[in-house]
Nucleic acid binder design. Structure first.
Length: 261
DNA sequence: ATGGCAGTACTATACTGA
């Protein structure tokens, strides 16, 4: 069983890359982020042609998540509001960032965590607020499902070794203490980084800025993750970043990350 | 170095991303 996460930065622009990658990788489930398309315009026919069902939760221009799966998913739910009361969710479901479904007893949660823009931004406050509600959301899911795989674009590098140059990271979005503490608090529910089961050293990245030849210089960040409950962590046999799609013409700025059981 | 690059909506330039 292979489950992958990939921020594609527009599923329509990246359609050829994604269908080719699905065929080559034979992933069972692919979690997409930044689909940037409303559900009616999601290219599900193209994915059906290569053998995948689409479960979508999108919006115009921004954000948007989707699950692609070879087999039907059970209990697909969109947004925080599917499990949390309105009083906790507030306006957070206006941005489409959360979708979950069950495959082979594994509850897969696909997340697109807000970027946060910069430390003096309202978006940074929004990101921290979002991570607080994420903790509540996952707590409810964990009470019902012992096998949870929480993956996606977290827009947080938890350790300095996840950043090509961590100098000055305290003032950089994705690496501030407040963001790290907020994500750590989520993980304290009982989730472990699947990638770190197999790779303890630094220098492994999942995102490279389009600008300044960042990919050529391997000046990246590891911000796309698979967080696993202990049973799944034990069952994982590999977790890798596939840099190949990042080398193609007109790539996403993120690479897919794949965990296998 | 406060740029640089890319996608979307719109149709020139603003907003967003990370």
């Amino acid at each position: 069983m292979k489950i992958a996460t990939w921020n594609v930065n527009s599923v329509r622009t990246r359609l050829a890359h994604v269908t080719a990658w699905l065929t080559a990788s034979s992933a069972d489930v692919l979690c997409l982020q930044e689909t940037k398309v409303t559900d009616d315009l999601f290219p599900q026919a193209a994915f059906a042609e290569v053998g995948y069902r689409s479960y979508v939760y999108g919006q115009k221009s921004y954000n948007g998540v989707a699950l692609l799966s070879r087999l039907p998913l059970d209990a697909v739910q969109m947004g925080f509001g599917a499990v949390l009361p309105e009083s906790l969710v507030g306006d957070l479901d206006e941005q489409k960032r959360v979708i979950t479904g069950v495959i082979a007893g594994i509850q897969v949660v696909n997340l697109y965590v807000p970027n946060g823009s910069s430390l003096d931004s309202d978006k940074y406050i929004y990101k921290l607020r979002w991570l607080k509600v994420l903790r509540e959301y996952l707590q409810v899911l964990l009470a019902k499902s012992p096998s949870l795989l929480v993956c996606g674009d977290f827009n947080v590098a938890l350790e300095d070794i996840d950043i090509h140059n961590p100098k000055g990271r305290e003032k950089q979005v994705m690496a501030t203490d407040a963001e790290r503490e907020a994500l750590s608090s989520v993980l304290e529910l009982g989730l472990c980084d699947g990638f770190r089961k197999f790779t303890t050293e630094g220098g492994y990245f999942s995102w490279w800025d389009y600008r300044s030849g960042a990919f050529r210089r391997d000046a990246g960040w590891r911000i796309d993750h698979h967080y696993l409950t202990p049973d799944l962590y034990d069952r994982a046999i590999s977790c890798v970043i596939d840099k190949e799609p990042r080398k193609l013409e007109q790539p996403s700025d993120h690479a897919p990350v794949i965990v296998e059981f």
